[in-house]
Amino acid sequence: MESLTNTMHAVPLNHYILLSTIIFAIGVMGVLIRRNAIVIFMSVELMLNSVNLLLTAFSVYRGDATGQVFVFFIMALAAAEVAVGLAIIVMIYRNTNSIDINVLNRLKW
């Protein structure tokens, strides 16, 4: 494990930020271009994970364990969110027989 982390010693912090930015942007695109509610949910998960990775990178960069504890809390939050969200999707499917989000356009003002 030590040799594995020694290989990391040259990666600049900027590259971690760039990677997280790109994956976050991919998640945003997924939310914008897909109509399947489950795929939109998965894009949200992608965004959450990119932020988790960035928090961990900063935590290692600063030598402070608080960032990793935050990631732990975000994971607990994501688990709760997924459980409630998927229950809502199942209920939507039961009522409208589809999970196309355009069926829900009455939620617009």
């Binding site: 030590e2 982390t5 990391m8 010693h9 040259a10 990666v11 600049p12 912090l13 971690y16 961990t56 990178a57 935590s59 290692v60 960069y61 030598g63 364990a65 990793q68």
Partner: peptide
């Protein structure tokens, strides 16, 4: 660069 100062951080 991201350096691991404290090896047992995580």
């Amino acid at each position: 660069p991201v350096l691991l100062q404290n090896p047992d951080l995580g």
